[in-house]
């Protein structure tokens, strides 16, 4: 899934998604790291309770909101950091 032929990425880092370690590279957004790890479903919609994932990929739609240290952030605009602890948001919880 990562395009390997064009660039050298930043140093490897590990993020934790609901407690599970996921490998990523410095410079990637949380959304990119999750996409590359095959995690598409990031939250549940508030009323219909349907799965949602990254949609606009530029910080406008708010569909990719995850929690980092309790703060709600858009995964597509937030860079990964080593040791980052992310929880996926389920509506109503």
């Amino acid at each position: 899934m990562r395009i390997e032929n064009a660039v050298a990425r930043g140093r490897p880092v590990t993020i934790h998604v609901d407690g599970t370690p996921v490998g990523a590279f410095a410079g990637e957004s949380i959304a990119t790291a999750l996409l590359a790890a095959g995690i598409r479903r990031l939250r549940e919609s508030p009323r219909a309770r349907e799965p949602r994932g990254m949609f606009c990929a530029m910080g406008a739609c708010q569909e990719c909101v995850v929690r980092v240290d309790g703060r709600a952030v858009t995964a597509c605009t937030e860079p990964v950091r080593d040791g980052l602890s992310i929880s996926l948001v389920d509506a109503g919880r």
């Binding site: 899934m1 395009i3 064009a6 660039v7 990119t32 598409r40 799965p51 606009c56 990929a57 530029m58």
Partner: peptide
């Protein structure tokens, strides 16, 4: 609204800057 549906403009960001494919 299904995960895996993304905007074209967003896809250019994934490809050009993040260097990741939107899918297989």
């Amino acid at each position: 609204t299904l995960p895996g549906v993304i905007g074209l403009a967003g896809a250019t960001v994934l490809l050009k800057s993040q260097q990741v494919l939107p899918g297989e």
